[in-house]
Write a protein that binds this DNA or RNA. Structure first.
Length: 617
DNA sequence: TACTTCT
C-alpha cells in the first residue's frame, strides 16, 4: 500500500473529527517523506537471506553459498515519496485506515524482506522480528509507529530493535534512509517508557539517552524524527548544537530531557558548564559512528564517553550506526562497546543499483564549463526543478562559495552550504534547497552524511573526495526511497589514488566502468598504491599497514568480510602479523558458540580498502 | 590537506 493508495482508500470513509486533536507544530506543516516500508515490490532477482542465527559453525542458514551474490535490491514503490505530504494529515488519515493497511501489507511483502541479505555476528543474538507487534514497544510508541506509516519494520529495525530491547550493545551497518534512526529511537523510547526512566526538570539536565551525530543539521534531523516517535508519550527530547544561541538551549534543557541529541562540541561545553550531566545515561547512540570515531572527532567522543561522568560500558547500552564502517574504525569502536552484536544489512532503501554512477575525466581548468554543460542539459530536459534537485559536492569551503557565485552568475540558481557560514545561513541554504527555491546546492562534506533531502535527482562530485567512504555517503543523497538517482563524478589526475576503490565500488553496484578508469585503477595498484594507501594514509593506521597485504584479492563478499572483521576486531587486531587464515582462526575463536564466517578466506583486501565503504551495510 | 565539531 502506497501513500497515495492510503489516501485514496480513506477518502470514502468517514473521518473522525474527534481525532483531529492538537498537532504539535513540528508535525504540522513539514513535508516529511516517510518511506512506506510496506511498499516493496519484489526484487528483480532471486536472492537469499544471509542472516545466520545458529549456535554452531554448521548451523547457519545460507552458509558458504551465495558469496558475492549480494546484489539484491528492494525497490520501493515509486509513488511513495513523489509528493511531499503534510504529516498531520497523514496522522489523522491513518487513524482511520491503519488496520486495513496492516493486513494487506503483511501478506504482500514478507518475501521481499526475506530476500534482504543480513548478517549478524556475536554471541546469543536475539532473533529478528517480522512485525512491530512482536515487540512490546508500548502503546504510545505503537500509535506513533502507525502514525508514521511504518507498517512493517525495515530489515535493520527487524534485527536491531530486538537486540537493543534485549539489552545488548550493537554495531550496525545500514544505509541512511533505511530506518536507522527509528532503529535506535524505538528501543530507547520504549525502554524509557517501560522502565520509567523519566527524568525530572532540573537545572542540571540528566538525560537517560544520548544521541551524537557529526553535524548540526543531522542532529536537528534526528531530533525532529525522534520527536515524531515520542509524540504524546511523555518522553522529552531535546537537541543541543553549536552555532545557535546557547541560552535557548539551556531553557529547553531545564524543562527536562530524557533523550538528548547533540553534536560533540556543544555537548562538551554544556557538560563543562554543568548544565548537562551524563550520570544517568542508560543509552548511548552514535549516528554516522565511523565519522564520529575518525581523527577529527575521536578525541571528543573519547572525552564524552570516558572522561565525563558517563556510566561505564557495563552500566549502559551503546549503539553504533553507520552506512560505512571501515575495520580500523570498528576496532576503535570496540573500545566503547561490551559484548556487542554486529549487524550488517544489505542494500536497504537507497541501493546504489538505483543510482546511476558516471565518472567523467575532466581537467581541473575545465570543471566549471563541464558543470555548466551538465546543468544546461538538465535544464533542457526539464530535470531541473523543484522535484529534481542537484547537489554539487566540492572539496573546500572557499570552493563552495566560489562555485555558488559562478553558477549564480551563469544564471543557475545555486546556494552554498559549508562550515564557514553561520548557522542561520546554513539552515537557510538547506531550507531553500529542500523547498526547491534554489534547486542547486553547492556543499562541502558538511552535507554528505545522513541528511535526508527528498528529490535530489543528481549528485555531482565536482571534486571527488579523498576517501571512498565519503563518496558512498555523498552519492547516497540521491536515489533514496526507491527513486532513481544519478551521480556524476569529475575525475582528475589528482584522484588517481581513488581509482581502484572507485572501480571496485562501481563494479559491485553493477555500473559500467569507463575503460580509462579501469586502466587508472590497474596502474594505481601496480604502483602499490591503490585506494587504500589513501584510505590509511597519514598516521591514521600507520602501524597496521601489514594487514593490507594479508588479503585475498579474489574475495568479493563485502558482507562476510566486514562481519569477519567486526568479530575479529576486538580479538585479533593486536596480532603482530596475521594472514587471512589467522584471522579466520581468531574469528571462530572470538565467536565461540556463534555461527561464524567460515570459508577461511576473508576479503580483507576489499574490506580494508573499500569493504566497509561499500555502503551496503 | 580539508572537512566536521564550543565561545
Amino acid at each position: 500500500m502506497t501513500w497515495s493508495d492510503a489516501r485514496n482508500d480513506s477518502t470514502p470513509k468517514p473521518t473522525r473529527p474527534a481525532r483531529l486533536t492538537y498537532i504539535p507544530p513540528h508535525l504540522r506543516k513539514k513535508c516529511v517523506p516517510v518511506p512506506n516500508y510496506n511498499a516493496y515490490s519484489l526484487p528483480t532477482e532471486s536472492t537469499h537471506l544471509e542472516f545466520r542465527n545458529g549456535r554452531g559453525r554448521g548451523r547457519g542458514r545460507g552458509r558458504g553459498r551465495g558469496r558475492g551474490r549480494l546484489y539484491q535490491t528492494e525497490r520501493w514503490n515509486q509513488n511513495q515519496t513523489q509528493a511531499p505530504f503534510d504529516i498531520s494529515f497523514k496522522f489523522n488519515e491513518l487513524d482511520v485506515n491503519d488496520d486495513e493497511a496492516n493486513t494487506e501489507s503483511e501478506s504482500m511483502n514478507l518475501e521481499a524482506y526475506e530476500d534482504i541479505p543480513v548478517e549478524a555476528s556475536g554471541s546469543d543474538i536475539p532473533a529478528p522480528v517480522n512485525t512491530f507487534a512482536e515487540i512490546d514497544l508500548g502503546e504510545g510508541l505503537n500509535q506513533n509507529i502507525k502514525r508514521c506509516n511504518y507498517v512493517k519494520p525495515t530489515p535493520i529495525q527487524r534485527h536491531a530493535i530486538p537486540i537493543v530491547m534485549a539489552g545488548r550493545d550493537l554495531m550496525a551497518c545500514a544505509q541512511t534512509g533505511s530506518g536507522k534512526t527509528a532503529a535506535f529511537c524505538f528501543p530507547i523510547i520504549s525502554g524509557i517508557l517501560n522502565q520509567n526512566h523519566f527524568t525530572r526538570p532540573n537545572r542540571v539536565a540528566c538525560p537517560v539517552a544520548l544521541i551524537l551525530s557529526p553535524t548540526r543539521e543531522l542532529s536537528c534531523q534526528i531530533h525532529d524524527e525522534a520527536k515524531k516517535f515520542a509524540y504524546q508519550t511523555g518522553v522529552k527530547i531535546s537537541v543541543t548544537y553549536g552555532g545557535a544561541p546557547i541560552s535557548q538551549q539551556f531553557r529547553n534543557l531545564e524543562r527536562g530531557v530524557d533523550i538528548l541529541v547533540a553534536t560533540p562540541g556543544r555537548l562538551v561545553d554544556m557538560i563543562e558548564r554543568s548544565r548537562v550531566s551524563l550520570r544517568a545515561i542508560k543509552y548511548l547512540a552514535l549516528d554516522e559512528a565511523d565519522r564520529m570515531l575518525d581523527m577529527g572527532f575521536e578525541p571528543q567522543i573519547r572525552k564524552i564517553v570516558k572522561e565525563m561522568d558517563m556510566p561505564p560500558c557495563s552500566e549502559r547500552q551503546t549503539m553504533f550506526f553507520s552506512a560505512t564502517f571501515p575495520s580500523e574504525i570498528q576496532r576503535l569502536a570496540s573500545d566503547f562497546l561490551s559484548n556487542y552484536i554486529f549487524v550488517a544489512v544489505g542494500r536497504v532503501g537507497s541501493s546504489t543499483d538505483l543510482i546511476s554512477q558516471r565518472v567523467e575525466f575532466v581537467h581541473d581548468v575545465d570543471k566549471r564549463n563541464h558543470l555548466i554543460n551538465l546543468l544546461q542539459g538538465q535544464r533542457a530536459n526539464g530535470t531541473h526543478s523543484k522535484n529534481a534537485l542537484t547537489l554539487v559536492f566540492v572539496e573546500t569551503k572557499r570552493g563552495a562559495d566560489a562555485l555558488e557565485n559562478w553558477l549564480s552568475m551563469k544564471g543557475f540558481p545555486a546556494i552554498a552550504i559549508h562550515g564557514d557560514k553561520v548557522q542561520m545561513e546554513r539552515e537557510r541554504a538547506l531550507k531553500s534547497f529542500r523547498s526547491g527555491s534554489t534547486p542547486i546546492l553547492v556543499a562541502t562534506d558538511v552535507a554528505s552524511r545522513g541528511l535526508d533531502v527528498p528529490h535530489v535527482a543528481h549528485v555531482i562530485n565536482f571534486d571527488l573526495p579523498k576517501d571512498i567512504d565519503d563518496y558512498v555517503h555523498r552519492i547516497g543523497r540521491t536515489g533514496r526511497a526507491g527513486n532513481s538517482g544519478l551521480a556524476t563524478a569529475f575525475f582528475t589526475e589528482k584522484n588517481l589514488p581513488l581509482a581502484k576503490a572507485l572501480v571496485e565500488l562501481m563494479q559491485e553496484a553493477k555500473q559500467e566502468v569507463p575503460l580509462w578508469l579501469s586502466d587508472y585503477a590497474k596502474r594505481a595498484s601496480n604502483v602499490g598504491g591503490s585506494g587504500r594507501i589513501n584510505r590509511f594514509g597519514g598516521n591514521k593506521f600507520g602501524g597496521y599497514d601489514f594487514r593490507r597485504d594479508a588479503q585475498s584479492e579474489s574475495e568479493n563478499d563485502y558482507h562476510s568480510s566486514t562481519c569477519g572483521n567486526a568479530a575479529a576486531s576486538s580479538y585479533a587486531l593486536s596480532h603482530a602479523v596475521a594472514t587471512s587464515n589467522d584471522y579466520a582462526a581468531a574469528n571462530s575463536y572470538a565467536n565461540t558458540g556463534v555461527d561464524s564466517y567460515t570459508s577461511g578466506s576473508y576479503g580483507y583486501g576489499h574490506n580494508f580498502s573499500s569493504g566497509g565503504a561499500s555502503g551496503w551495510h
